[in-house]
Design a protein around this nucleic acid. Structure first.
Length: 168
DNA sequence: TAGGCCATCTGGTCCT
DNA sequence: AGGACCAGATGGCCTA
């Protein structure tokens, strides 16, 4: 569990701090030039990175190999798992009936349905782009990360500029 | 046709 | 014991 948590945390940090995504153009309800005018200078770098959404998928193999988080999942990591005390424990063999397996399948389908509903809600919250096809799940997550970073930085810069201490 | 994305099934693990 | 969660495997669909 501790290992898993660390992995997720560092992966999120990598996504949030080193995002360079694929080409896209802003959609109809997000006018690019207007958004640029609205964005303070400090935000333009992040804005450009948002507008650069896509070369993320074009990372070279050496880039991925350079990521320490992923390297931990390589062969040495597997060896660690193989020899971990956790896996040395005798495996519990759970006998399961056909009906139970079917019920589990239905629950899993429902779980994935809920997950996809959440993805759909997230798709509606992030800016839409002139894609012919809808965002995939991974694209949605990556774009949401960049979008949140952009909006956070935008808010910070406005607060600094106006000298206000907060909204509340 | 290869590669990406997704749905589904499945077995293992964790948690209540 | 059983549900939730997760990851691997597999097959279908779509696009370049």
């Amino acid at each position: 569990m501790e290992y898993q948590g660390g992995l997720m945390e560092s992966t999120a940090v990598d996504f949030a701090t080193d995002v360079n995504l694929a080409d896209f153009s802003l959609g109809s309800h997000h006018n690019e030039s207007t958004a640029r005018e609205m964005a303070p200078a400090q935000s333009l770098d992040l804005y450009d990175r948002l507008c650069d959404f896509a070369s993320f998928g074009n990372r070279t193999l050496s880039f991925w190999e350079s990521m320490p988080v992923l390297n931990r999942l390589g062969d040495p990591g597997k060896e660690e798992l193989k020899t971990s005390p956790l896996l040395d424990r005798p495996k519990r063999k759970r006998m399961i009936t056909y009906a139970q397996r079917q019920a589990a399948n239905i629950r899993e389908r429902k779980r994935m349905f809920n997950l996809n509903e959440a993805f759909d809600q997230l798709r509606k919250k992030v800016p839409t782009f002139a894609y012919e096809k809808r965002l995939s799940r991974i694209e949605t997550l990556r774009l949401a990360i960049v979008y949140i970073s952009f909006m956070t930085e935008l808010l910070d810069s406005y607060q600094k500029k106006d000298g206000c201490s907060g909204l509340g």
